[in-house]
Structure formats: structure tokens, C-alpha cells
């Protein structure tokens, strides 16, 4: 009986490279859109988390705690299996984008909140004393500084987000993990299929992670 990594199985992977390529492209597209959504939600809820008005801060807590303390898989299943019962039928790509975007939005909200709270109070006061409103002060003075501090953890969030798009394999999402899995289960060539898939994830995530580390080092120098 041939081993799990027999040569002909590798050849099969390369023969069917377009299956993996299709999944890879889908994973990248999904990652980009989910990341955009996560950033939007993260900045919005992160800022709400630092607001003076208590209901805004509650809103931040409910979102963050609810999302961070339930598994991503359940959230995606809810969107995929649950929402149709409420008459909302989403295309699977949207399920992926919303699921992963909302999930990482909660983590990014915490990064943004921590970044804002790390800015000394005197910065807000200087802005107010010049006549800036709360939101103007946020926009021109606080967020640009918080952004610098938040870049390294944000890049790490991007890495996690890309990996977590693989949850789509569980709802036939058409992403890289799904294609690898369904291809392998049709011919049982699991070994090479998963190795190649892992390498493809590394190909996107490793450069990003390295970039994050470099940013971190640069920040240490400039502080």
C-alpha cells in the first residue's frame, strides 16, 4: 500500500493546481473584504469603548464580550444555518465575510480601545482648549497617534483573520481550505493536499507576521 505522501499523490496535486489556485484566490478576496469590515467595526466600536457616554461603552462591551467568548464556528453556523430560519438567506461568500469580519472586528475594537486609552489625557485637553470637539480631537489628534501604536497588533489580527477564513470549509465556502478538503476527500490524497494548503497560508501570513515584528521594533525605537 502506498504511503500518505507517495510521489504520485504529489503529482496529482500539481496536476489539479487550478483547484487550489481557485481556493487561494477566494481566500485572499474573502480576507481582504473581511479585513475591511473588521477594521470598520473595530474602529467604530473601539472608539465607542472610550466614549464618555455610558451606553456607548456598554455597546462596546456587549459586542466584544459576546463575540470573543463564543467560537467563530458557532457564529458562522448561525449566519449559515440560523439566519435562513429568520428568512435571511445570505450567499456563502457573504456569510464568510460577515462571520470572519464581525469576529475580528471585536478583537480589533480592543486593540483600538487600548491604543486610544494609551494616549495621555493632556492630548485631548490641548485639543479641547483650542476649540476642537470630541470627534474632531479624535480624528486629528488621538486616532493618528493611536494608529501608530495599534499597527503591530493590527497586523497580527490580519494574520489570524486570514487563517480563520478556513472556517468556511465547514459551510462549503469555496475557500482554499474547502477546496483542499473536498479535493482530498474525493481521492483520499490528504497528505500532499494539506501540506500544500498549509504552505499557501504560510505564503501570505509569514510575510505579514514578519512585517508586524519589524513595525514593533521600529515603534520601540521611536518611543
Amino acid at each position: 500500500m502506498p504511503g500518505p505522501f507517495a510521489g504520485f499523490k504529489w503529482l496529482a496535486v500539481f496536476r489539479d493546481w487550478s483547484v487550489f489556485a481557485e481556493g487561494f484566490v477566494m481566500t485572499i478576496a474573502l480576507s481582504v473584504l473581511a479585513l475591511a469590515l473588521a477594521l470598520l467595526l473595530g474602529v467604530l466600536f473601539g472608539v465607542l469603548g472610550t466614549a464618555q457616554w455610558k451606553p456607548f461603552r456598554w455597546l462596546n462591551r456587549v459586542y466584544v464580550e459576546f463575540i470573543q467568548n463564543t467560537p467563530l464556528v458557532i457564529q458562522v453556523f448561525f449566519l449559515y444555518h440560523g439566519l435562513p430560519h429568520l428568512g435571511i438567506m445570505l450567499p456563502v461568500f457573504s456569510v464568510g465575510m460577515l462571520g470572519v469580519g464581525i469576529y475580528h472586528g471585536a478583537y480589533i475594537a480592543e486593540v483600538v480601545r487600548a491604543g486610544i486609552q494609551a494616549i495621555p489625557r493632556g492630548q485631548h485637553e490641548a485639543a479641547y482648549s483650542q476649540g476642537f470637539s470630541y470627534w474632531e480631537s479624535m480624528r486629528y489628534i488621538i486616532l493618528p497617534q493611536a494608529k501608530r501604536m495599534a499597527y503591530p497588533p493590527l497586523t497580527n489580527q490580519a494574520v489570524s483573520l486570514i487563517k480563520n477564513t478556513s472556517v468556511m470549509a465547514m459551510v462549503a465556502g469555496g475557500d482554499l481550505m474547502y477546496h483542499a478538503d473536498s479535493w482530498a476527500s474525493s481521492n483520499l490524497y490528504y497528505g500532499p493536499a494539506y501540506v500544500v494548503t498549509g504552505l499557501l497560508y504560510i505564503a501570505i501570513c509569514f510575510p505579514l507576521a514578519t512585517y508586524a515584528r519589524r513595525l514593533e521594533r521600529k515603534l520601540e525605537v521611536s518611543l
Binding site: P120, G122, Q123, E125, A126, Y128, Q130, Q145
Partner: peptide
């Protein structure tokens, strides 16, 4: 507040901007 300037003990310049940008922002 636009017509009341304030100078603080801790300066509170905007560190992400140049000196000139600090002056022209408001």
C-alpha cells in the same frame, strides 16, 4: 475656546506632527 489660548504644565504638543503643523492645525 478658539479665542482663549491655554499653555499647560506638560506642554501637550501633538507629537505626531511637526512644530509648524502643531501651529497650523487649529
Amino acid at each position: 475656546r478658539q479665542s482663549v489660548g491655554m499653555v499647560f504644565q506638560q506642554f501637550n504638543l501633538y507629537p505626531h506632527m511637526t512644530v509648524l503643523e502643531n501651529l497650523t492645525l487649529a
